[in-house]
Design a protein around this nucleic acid. Sequence first.
DNA 1: CGCTGAATTGACGGACATCAAGATGTGTGG
DNA 2: CCACACATCTTGATGTCCGTCAATTCAGCG
Lengths: 204, 204
Amino acid sequence: MFSVAPNASMFVRPPMPTRSAGLPDGPLAFMGAPMRFARNAEVYGEDEPAEYLYQVISGAVRTYRMLDDGRRQVVAFYLPGDIFGVEAGDVHLSSAEAVSESQVLVAKRSAVLARAEREKQLSRQLWDLMVRELQRVQQHSFVLIKSASIELPMSRQDIADYLGLTIETVSRTFTQFVQSGLISLETSRRIQFRNRAALNRLNA
Amino acid sequence: MFSVAPNASMFVRPPMPTRSAGLPDGPLAFMGAPMRFARNAEVYGEDEPAEYLYQVISGAVRTYRMLDDGRRQVVAFYLPGDIFGVEAGDVHLSSAEAVSESQVLVAKRSAVLARAEREKQLSRQLWDLMVRELQRVQQHSFVLIKSASIELPMSRQDIADYLGLTIETVSRTFTQFVQSGLISLETSRRIQFRNRAALNRLNA
DNA sequence: CGCTGAATTGACGGACATCAAGATGTGTGG
DNA sequence: CCACACATCTTGATGTCCGTCAATTCAGCG
Protein backbone atom coordinates (compact mmCIF):
# COMPACT_ATOMS: atom_id res chain seq x y z
CA MET A 1 0.00 0.00 0.00
CA PHE A 2 2.81 2.36 0.76
CA SER A 3 5.02 1.73 -2.19
CA VAL A 4 2.22 2.69 -4.52
CA ALA A 5 0.76 5.59 -2.61
CA PRO A 6 3.14 6.34 0.20
CA ASN A 7 1.82 9.80 0.92
CA ALA A 8 -1.86 8.99 0.78
CA SER A 9 -3.62 8.12 3.97
CA MET A 10 -7.19 7.57 4.90
CA PHE A 11 -7.98 10.27 7.31
CA VAL A 12 -10.56 12.90 7.85
CA ARG A 13 -10.61 16.66 8.15
CA PRO A 14 -11.84 18.31 11.34
CA PRO A 15 -15.54 19.12 11.33
CA MET A 16 -16.32 22.60 10.08
CA PRO A 17 -17.53 25.26 12.49
CA THR A 18 -21.14 25.90 11.54
CA ARG A 19 -23.46 28.82 12.10
CA SER A 20 -26.39 28.59 14.43
CA ALA A 21 -28.89 27.26 11.90
CA GLY A 22 -26.56 24.42 10.92
CA LEU A 23 -25.87 25.98 7.54
CA PRO A 24 -22.18 26.36 6.82
CA ASP A 25 -20.31 29.61 6.36
CA GLY A 26 -18.28 30.66 3.35
CA PRO A 27 -18.72 32.01 -0.18
CA LEU A 28 -21.95 30.10 -0.75
CA ALA A 29 -23.68 31.32 2.40
CA PHE A 30 -27.29 32.34 1.78
CA MET A 31 -26.89 31.85 -1.96
CA GLY A 32 -28.37 28.40 -2.37
CA ALA A 33 -30.94 25.87 -1.32
CA PRO A 34 -30.25 22.77 0.79
CA MET A 35 -30.99 19.40 -0.84
CA ARG A 36 -30.99 15.86 0.53
CA PHE A 37 -29.22 12.98 -1.20
CA ALA A 38 -29.60 9.32 -0.31
CA ARG A 39 -26.60 7.01 -0.04
CA ASN A 40 -25.03 6.55 -3.51
CA ALA A 41 -27.40 9.10 -5.07
CA GLU A 42 -25.89 11.13 -7.89
CA VAL A 43 -25.31 14.83 -7.25
CA TYR A 44 -24.13 15.43 -10.79
CA GLY A 45 -22.85 13.29 -13.64
CA GLU A 46 -19.88 13.36 -15.95
CA ASP A 47 -20.48 15.45 -19.09
CA GLU A 48 -23.42 17.29 -17.56
CA PRO A 49 -23.30 21.09 -17.81
CA ALA A 50 -21.77 22.59 -14.69
CA GLU A 51 -24.50 24.98 -13.55
CA TYR A 52 -24.11 24.79 -9.79
CA LEU A 53 -21.65 24.98 -6.94
CA TYR A 54 -22.10 22.70 -3.96
CA GLN A 55 -21.28 22.72 -0.28
CA VAL A 56 -21.60 19.71 1.99
CA ILE A 57 -23.77 20.43 5.04
CA SER A 58 -23.86 16.93 6.49
CA GLY A 59 -22.75 13.50 5.33
CA ALA A 60 -20.02 13.03 2.71
CA VAL A 61 -19.62 13.25 -1.06
CA ARG A 62 -17.17 11.59 -3.43
CA THR A 63 -16.20 12.71 -6.93
CA TYR A 64 -14.92 10.12 -9.36
CA ARG A 65 -14.12 9.40 -12.97
CA MET A 66 -14.37 6.13 -14.87
CA LEU A 67 -11.07 5.12 -16.45
CA ASP A 68 -10.84 3.69 -19.93
CA ASP A 69 -10.19 0.22 -18.54
CA GLY A 70 -13.41 0.29 -16.53
CA ARG A 71 -11.89 1.00 -13.15
CA ARG A 72 -13.25 3.81 -11.02
CA GLN A 73 -10.95 6.58 -9.85
CA VAL A 74 -12.19 8.43 -6.79
CA VAL A 75 -10.78 11.94 -7.10
CA ALA A 76 -11.74 13.39 -3.74
CA PHE A 77 -13.94 13.06 -0.70
CA TYR A 78 -15.81 16.10 0.60
CA LEU A 79 -16.94 16.51 4.19
CA PRO A 80 -19.20 19.03 5.93
CA GLY A 81 -18.08 22.57 5.08
CA ASP A 82 -16.26 21.55 1.91
CA ILE A 83 -17.26 23.14 -1.37
CA PHE A 84 -17.13 21.08 -4.55
CA GLY A 85 -18.00 21.53 -8.20
CA VAL A 86 -15.42 24.32 -8.70
CA GLU A 87 -13.20 21.95 -10.63
CA ALA A 88 -15.56 22.05 -13.61
CA GLY A 89 -15.28 24.07 -16.79
CA ASP A 90 -18.49 24.28 -18.78
CA VAL A 91 -19.21 20.62 -18.16
CA HIS A 92 -18.28 18.29 -15.33
CA LEU A 93 -15.38 15.96 -16.05
CA SER A 94 -16.19 13.90 -13.02
CA SER A 95 -19.32 12.59 -11.34
CA ALA A 96 -20.35 13.28 -7.75
CA GLU A 97 -22.27 10.97 -5.45
CA ALA A 98 -23.32 11.00 -1.82
CA VAL A 99 -21.20 8.52 0.16
CA SER A 100 -23.82 8.38 2.87
CA GLU A 101 -27.15 10.11 3.42
CA SER A 102 -26.13 13.76 2.90
CA GLN A 103 -27.41 17.29 2.89
CA VAL A 104 -25.89 19.57 0.27
CA LEU A 105 -26.22 23.30 -0.29
CA VAL A 106 -26.73 23.97 -4.01
CA ALA A 107 -26.05 27.43 -5.45
CA LYS A 108 -26.33 28.64 -9.03
CA ARG A 109 -22.84 29.04 -10.38
CA SER A 110 -23.80 32.02 -12.55
CA ALA A 111 -25.28 33.83 -9.55
CA VAL A 112 -22.20 33.27 -7.44
CA LEU A 113 -19.85 34.36 -10.21
CA ALA A 114 -22.00 37.41 -11.00
CA ARG A 115 -21.93 38.46 -7.39
CA ALA A 116 -18.19 37.81 -7.31
CA GLU A 117 -17.77 40.41 -10.02
CA ARG A 118 -19.32 43.05 -7.80
CA GLU A 119 -17.80 41.91 -4.53
CA LYS A 120 -14.05 41.83 -4.44
CA GLN A 121 -14.00 39.82 -1.26
CA LEU A 122 -16.15 37.04 -2.66
CA SER A 123 -14.01 36.93 -5.76
CA ARG A 124 -10.95 36.47 -3.59
CA GLN A 125 -12.65 33.72 -1.62
CA LEU A 126 -13.48 31.83 -4.80
CA TRP A 127 -9.91 32.13 -6.02
CA ASP A 128 -8.62 30.77 -2.73
CA LEU A 129 -11.13 27.97 -2.97
CA MET A 130 -9.77 27.06 -6.37
CA VAL A 131 -6.20 27.11 -5.09
CA ARG A 132 -7.10 24.88 -2.20
CA GLU A 133 -8.95 22.51 -4.50
CA LEU A 134 -5.89 22.26 -6.70
CA GLN A 135 -3.62 21.58 -3.80
CA ARG A 136 -6.01 19.03 -2.38
CA VAL A 137 -6.16 17.14 -5.66
CA GLN A 138 -2.40 17.35 -6.07
CA GLN A 139 -1.69 15.98 -2.64
CA HIS A 140 -4.52 13.50 -2.87
CA SER A 141 -4.72 13.11 0.86
CA PHE A 142 -6.70 13.91 3.93
CA VAL A 143 -5.67 15.73 7.04
CA LEU A 144 -5.50 13.92 10.29
CA ILE A 145 -8.00 14.77 12.98
CA LYS A 146 -7.27 15.00 16.65
CA SER A 147 -9.86 12.69 18.11
CA ALA A 148 -8.82 9.16 19.00
CA SER A 149 -11.75 7.52 17.27
CA ILE A 150 -13.38 8.21 13.92
CA GLU A 151 -16.24 6.86 11.87
CA LEU A 152 -15.38 6.43 8.18
CA PRO A 153 -18.27 7.39 5.93
CA MET A 154 -16.81 5.54 2.95
CA SER A 155 -16.58 1.85 2.14
CA ARG A 156 -13.41 -0.18 1.60
CA GLN A 157 -14.22 -0.02 -2.11
CA ASP A 158 -14.29 3.80 -2.00
CA ILE A 159 -10.93 3.86 -0.24
CA ALA A 160 -9.47 1.39 -2.71
CA ASP A 161 -10.64 3.43 -5.69
CA TYR A 162 -9.26 6.56 -4.08
CA LEU A 163 -5.82 5.03 -3.55
CA GLY A 164 -5.83 3.09 -6.81
CA LEU A 165 -5.67 -0.24 -4.98
CA THR A 166 -8.01 -3.19 -4.57
CA ILE A 167 -10.45 -3.73 -1.78
CA GLU A 168 -8.48 -6.78 -0.66
CA THR A 169 -5.24 -4.84 -0.28
CA VAL A 170 -6.98 -2.12 1.71
CA SER A 171 -8.54 -4.73 3.95
CA ARG A 172 -5.23 -6.51 4.48
CA THR A 173 -3.57 -3.22 5.37
CA PHE A 174 -6.18 -2.47 8.01
CA THR A 175 -5.64 -5.95 9.41
CA GLN A 176 -1.88 -5.38 9.55
CA PHE A 177 -2.39 -2.07 11.34
CA VAL A 178 -4.54 -3.82 13.89
CA GLN A 179 -1.98 -6.60 14.33
CA SER A 180 0.86 -4.13 14.83
CA GLY A 181 -1.19 -2.28 17.40
CA LEU A 182 -1.45 0.96 15.46
CA ILE A 183 -5.24 0.98 15.40
CA SER A 184 -8.16 -1.10 16.53
CA LEU A 185 -11.49 -1.61 14.80
CA GLU A 186 -14.73 -1.51 16.74
CA THR A 187 -16.58 -2.13 13.52
CA SER A 188 -15.01 -2.06 10.05
CA ARG A 189 -15.94 1.61 9.73
CA ARG A 190 -15.06 2.73 13.25
CA ILE A 191 -11.36 3.24 13.87
CA GLN A 192 -9.52 3.81 17.12
CA PHE A 193 -6.01 5.16 16.92
CA ARG A 194 -3.59 3.37 19.23
CA ASN A 195 -0.26 4.79 18.10
CA ARG A 196 -0.62 8.09 16.31
CA ALA A 197 3.11 8.78 16.14
CA ALA A 198 3.89 5.51 14.39
CA LEU A 199 1.03 6.04 11.95
CA ASN A 200 2.32 9.49 11.04
CA ARG A 201 5.77 8.06 10.48
CA LEU A 202 4.28 5.86 7.74
CA ASN A 203 4.05 9.25 6.08
CA ALA A 204 0.67 10.84 5.95
CA MET B 1 3.68 0.26 -16.06
CA PHE B 2 0.07 0.00 -17.07
CA SER B 3 -1.41 -1.56 -14.03
CA VAL B 4 -0.08 1.25 -11.90
CA ALA B 5 -0.80 4.17 -14.19
CA PRO B 6 -2.96 2.87 -16.98
CA ASN B 7 -4.21 6.23 -18.12
CA ALA B 8 -0.93 8.08 -18.01
CA SER B 9 1.16 8.25 -21.12
CA MET B 10 4.27 10.10 -22.02
CA PHE B 11 3.28 12.34 -24.81
CA VAL B 12 3.52 15.93 -25.71
CA ARG B 13 1.10 18.73 -26.43
CA PRO B 14 1.08 20.41 -29.84
CA PRO B 15 3.35 23.45 -30.03
CA MET B 16 1.60 26.68 -29.16
CA PRO B 17 0.87 29.21 -31.90
CA THR B 18 3.08 32.20 -31.12
CA ARG B 19 2.92 35.82 -32.10
CA SER B 20 5.40 37.38 -34.45
CA ALA B 21 8.01 38.26 -31.85
CA GLY B 22 8.07 34.69 -30.52
CA LEU B 23 6.34 35.75 -27.31
CA PRO B 24 3.29 33.68 -26.55
CA ASP B 25 -0.27 34.90 -26.40
CA GLY B 26 -2.63 34.66 -23.46
CA PRO B 27 -3.41 36.35 -20.17
CA LEU B 28 0.25 37.14 -19.47
CA ALA B 29 0.90 38.82 -22.81
CA PHE B 30 2.89 42.06 -22.41
CA MET B 31 2.72 41.83 -18.64
CA GLY B 32 6.09 40.28 -17.88
CA ALA B 33 9.74 39.98 -18.71
CA PRO B 34 11.38 37.01 -20.42
CA MET B 35 14.06 35.17 -18.45
CA ARG B 36 16.45 32.37 -19.38
CA PHE B 37 16.94 29.27 -17.27
CA ALA B 38 19.70 26.71 -17.73
CA ARG B 39 18.99 22.98 -17.63
CA ASN B 40 17.92 21.98 -14.09
CA ALA B 41 17.94 25.60 -12.93
CA GLU B 42 15.32 26.40 -10.32
CA VAL B 43 12.48 28.70 -11.35
CA TYR B 44 11.02 28.75 -7.86
CA GLY B 45 11.33 26.64 -4.75
CA GLU B 46 8.94 25.00 -2.36
CA ASP B 47 7.85 27.28 0.49
CA GLU B 48 8.94 30.42 -1.34
CA PRO B 49 6.33 33.18 -1.52
CA ALA B 50 4.36 32.96 -4.77
CA GLU B 51 4.88 36.40 -6.26
CA TYR B 52 4.91 35.61 -9.95
CA LEU B 53 3.07 33.81 -12.71
CA TYR B 54 5.06 32.09 -15.43
CA GLN B 55 4.63 31.16 -19.06
CA VAL B 56 6.96 28.88 -20.98
CA ILE B 57 8.27 30.51 -24.15
CA SER B 58 10.73 27.80 -25.17
CA GLY B 59 12.09 24.65 -23.58
CA ALA B 60 10.22 22.80 -20.85
CA VAL B 61 9.58 23.10 -17.13
CA ARG B 62 8.69 20.52 -14.49
CA THR B 63 7.05 21.07 -11.12
CA TYR B 64 7.67 18.57 -8.36
CA ARG B 65 7.37 17.90 -4.66
CA MET B 66 9.62 15.84 -2.44
CA LEU B 67 7.75 13.10 -0.64
CA ASP B 68 8.38 12.28 2.99
CA ASP B 69 10.21 9.11 2.05
CA GLY B 70 12.68 11.04 -0.07
CA ARG B 71 11.24 10.19 -3.45
CA ARG B 72 10.49 12.94 -5.93
CA GLN B 73 6.99 13.35 -7.33
CA VAL B 74 6.87 15.23 -10.64
CA VAL B 75 3.49 16.94 -10.66
CA ALA B 76 3.42 18.29 -14.22
CA PHE B 77 5.45 19.16 -17.27
CA TYR B 78 4.92 22.53 -18.96
CA LEU B 79 5.68 23.17 -22.60
CA PRO B 80 5.81 26.36 -24.71
CA GLY B 81 2.61 28.33 -24.25
CA ASP B 82 1.74 26.72 -20.92
CA ILE B 83 1.27 28.92 -17.88
CA PHE B 84 2.36 27.65 -14.48
CA GLY B 85 2.54 28.96 -10.93
CA VAL B 86 -1.25 29.41 -10.68
CA GLU B 87 -1.47 26.41 -8.40
CA ALA B 88 0.08 28.37 -5.56
CA GLY B 89 -1.60 30.07 -2.63
CA ASP B 90 0.59 32.54 -0.80
CA VAL B 91 3.55 30.19 -0.98
CA HIS B 92 4.53 27.54 -3.50
CA LEU B 93 3.84 23.99 -2.41
CA SER B 94 5.96 22.63 -5.22
CA SER B 95 9.26 23.53 -6.83
CA ALA B 96 9.75 24.34 -10.51
CA GLU B 97 12.85 23.64 -12.60
CA ALA B 98 13.80 23.96 -16.23
CA VAL B 99 13.94 20.51 -17.83
CA SER B 100 16.15 21.83 -20.60
CA GLU B 101 17.51 25.28 -21.44
CA SER B 102 14.32 27.35 -21.33
CA GLN B 103 12.94 30.81 -21.78
CA VAL B 104 10.18 31.79 -19.39
CA LEU B 105 7.96 34.85 -19.28
CA VAL B 106 7.71 36.08 -15.68
CA ALA B 107 4.84 38.37 -14.64
CA LYS B 108 4.06 39.84 -11.25
CA ARG B 109 1.11 38.00 -9.83
CA SER B 110 -0.22 41.08 -8.06
CA ALA B 111 -0.14 43.08 -11.29
CA VAL B 112 -2.00 40.38 -13.20
CA LEU B 113 -4.62 39.98 -10.49
CA ALA B 114 -5.03 43.73 -10.14
CA ARG B 115 -5.61 44.09 -13.86
CA ALA B 116 -7.98 41.13 -13.72
CA GLU B 117 -10.14 43.07 -11.30
CA ARG B 118 -10.60 45.80 -13.86
CA GLU B 119 -10.82 43.63 -16.96
CA LYS B 120 -13.58 41.09 -16.90
CA GLN B 121 -12.14 39.23 -19.85
CA LEU B 122 -8.77 38.71 -18.19
CA SER B 123 -10.48 37.56 -15.03
CA ARG B 124 -12.37 34.98 -17.03
CA GLN B 125 -9.17 33.84 -18.72
CA LEU B 126 -7.48 33.31 -15.38
CA TRP B 127 -10.43 31.33 -14.08
CA ASP B 128 -10.35 29.10 -17.14
CA LEU B 129 -6.62 28.68 -16.66
CA MET B 130 -7.21 27.51 -13.13
CA VAL B 131 -9.87 25.06 -14.26
CA ARG B 132 -7.59 23.65 -16.91
CA GLU B 133 -4.73 23.36 -14.44
CA LEU B 134 -6.97 21.43 -12.09
CA GLN B 135 -8.09 19.09 -14.80
CA ARG B 136 -4.55 18.60 -16.02
CA VAL B 137 -3.35 17.66 -12.55
CA GLN B 138 -6.34 15.39 -12.03
CA GLN B 139 -5.82 13.52 -15.25
CA HIS B 140 -2.06 13.52 -14.84
CA SER B 141 -1.47 12.95 -18.53
CA PHE B 142 -0.31 14.49 -21.74
CA VAL B 143 -2.10 14.87 -25.01
CA LEU B 144 -0.89 13.03 -28.04
CA ILE B 145 0.62 15.01 -30.88
CA LYS B 146 0.14 14.31 -34.54
CA SER B 147 3.70 14.18 -35.80
CA ALA B 148 5.33 10.79 -36.24
CA SER B 149 8.53 11.72 -34.44
CA ILE B 150 9.10 13.65 -31.22
CA GLU B 151 12.01 14.75 -29.07
CA LEU B 152 11.41 14.24 -25.35
CA PRO B 153 12.80 17.11 -23.30
CA MET B 154 12.74 15.08 -20.08
CA SER B 155 14.96 12.27 -18.86
CA ARG B 156 13.91 8.73 -17.98
CA GLN B 157 14.20 9.77 -14.35
CA ASP B 158 11.75 12.65 -14.90
CA ILE B 159 9.30 10.28 -16.55
CA ALA B 160 9.70 7.74 -13.76
CA ASP B 161 9.07 10.37 -11.07
CA TYR B 162 6.05 11.60 -12.99
CA LEU B 163 4.53 8.14 -13.24
CA GLY B 164 5.66 7.03 -9.81
CA LEU B 165 7.80 4.24 -11.22
CA THR B 166 11.52 3.53 -11.32
CA ILE B 167 13.86 4.49 -14.11
CA GLU B 168 14.47 0.80 -14.84
CA THR B 169 10.80 0.06 -15.35
CA VAL B 170 10.41 3.03 -17.69
CA SER B 171 13.44 1.93 -19.66
CA ARG B 172 12.20 -1.65 -19.92
CA THR B 173 8.82 -0.42 -21.11
CA PHE B 174 10.42 1.59 -23.90
CA THR B 175 12.38 -1.49 -24.86
CA GLN B 176 9.21 -3.58 -24.96
CA PHE B 177 7.52 -0.98 -27.14
CA VAL B 178 10.42 -1.11 -29.55
CA GLN B 179 10.38 -4.92 -29.60
CA SER B 180 6.64 -5.01 -30.28
CA GLY B 181 7.09 -2.56 -33.11
CA LEU B 182 5.03 0.22 -31.55
CA ILE B 183 7.84 2.76 -31.61
CA SER B 184 11.48 3.03 -32.57
CA LEU B 185 14.20 5.02 -30.87
CA GLU B 186 16.68 7.03 -32.89
CA THR B 187 18.28 8.11 -29.66
CA SER B 188 16.87 7.50 -26.19
CA ARG B 189 15.12 10.86 -26.33
CA ARG B 190 13.94 10.77 -29.94
CA ILE B 191 10.86 8.65 -30.53
CA GLN B 192 9.29 7.51 -33.77
CA PHE B 193 5.75 6.22 -33.63
CA ARG B 194 5.22 3.06 -35.66
CA ASN B 195 1.76 2.00 -34.61
CA ARG B 196 -0.27 4.86 -33.23
CA ALA B 197 -3.53 2.93 -33.06
CA ALA B 198 -2.05 0.19 -30.87
CA LEU B 199 -0.41 2.75 -28.59
CA ASN B 200 -3.72 4.52 -28.08
CA ARG B 201 -5.37 1.25 -27.27
CA LEU B 202 -3.00 0.87 -24.30
CA ASN B 203 -5.19 3.68 -23.05
CA ALA B 204 -3.73 7.12 -23.17
C1' DC C 1 -34.09 -16.05 11.60
C1' DG C 2 -32.29 -16.22 6.58
C1' DC C 3 -30.95 -13.07 2.92
C1' DT C 4 -27.68 -9.86 0.94
C1' DG C 5 -23.92 -6.78 0.48
C1' DA C 6 -19.53 -5.76 2.78
C1' DA C 7 -15.36 -7.21 4.62
C1' DT C 8 -11.82 -10.54 5.59
C1' DT C 9 -8.60 -14.18 4.59
C1' DG C 10 -5.90 -17.49 1.77
C1' DA C 11 -3.33 -19.27 -2.44
C1' DC C 12 -1.06 -18.00 -6.35
C1' DG C 13 0.92 -15.42 -10.29
C1' DG C 14 2.70 -11.32 -12.33
C1' DA C 15 4.36 -6.61 -12.39
C1' DC C 16 7.50 -3.68 -10.45
C1' DA C 17 11.43 -2.49 -7.11
C1' DT C 18 16.01 -3.38 -5.81
C1' DC C 19 20.70 -4.41 -6.52
C1' DA C 20 24.27 -4.82 -9.69
C1' DA C 21 26.80 -4.66 -13.92
C1' DG C 22 27.45 -2.85 -18.56
C1' DA C 23 26.63 0.00 -22.52
C1' DT C 24 25.95 4.37 -24.56
C1' DG C 25 26.27 9.37 -24.75
C1' DT C 26 28.11 13.81 -23.67
C1' DG C 27 31.02 17.27 -22.11
C1' DT C 28 35.82 18.85 -20.95
C1' DG C 29 40.59 19.48 -21.15
C1' DG C 30 44.83 18.22 -23.21
C1' DC D 1 40.45 15.49 -32.48
C1' DC D 2 41.11 12.27 -29.07
C1' DA D 3 40.85 10.54 -24.31
C1' DC D 4 38.99 10.44 -20.12
C1' DA D 5 35.28 11.30 -16.71
C1' DC D 6 30.74 11.25 -15.64
C1' DA D 7 25.96 11.02 -16.38
C1' DT D 8 22.32 8.57 -18.59
C1' DC D 9 20.35 4.59 -20.18
C1' DT D 10 19.91 -0.40 -20.67
C1' DT D 11 19.82 -5.12 -19.21
C1' DG D 12 19.83 -9.07 -15.97
C1' DA D 13 18.71 -11.69 -11.56
C1' DT D 14 15.95 -11.90 -7.69
C1' DG D 15 12.55 -10.72 -4.17
C1' DT D 16 8.29 -8.62 -2.80
C1' DC D 17 4.07 -6.26 -3.01
C1' DC D 18 -0.25 -6.23 -4.94
C1' DG D 19 -3.96 -8.02 -8.08
C1' DT D 20 -6.86 -11.91 -9.15
C1' DC D 21 -9.72 -15.70 -7.99
C1' DA D 22 -12.12 -18.02 -4.56
C1' DA D 23 -14.01 -19.19 -0.19
C1' DT D 24 -15.62 -17.70 4.35
C1' DT D 25 -17.08 -14.62 7.84
C1' DC D 26 -19.53 -10.63 9.38
C1' DA D 27 -23.20 -7.03 9.72
C1' DG D 28 -27.40 -5.03 8.77
C1' DC D 29 -32.22 -5.62 7.64
C1' DG D 30 -36.60 -7.39 6.21
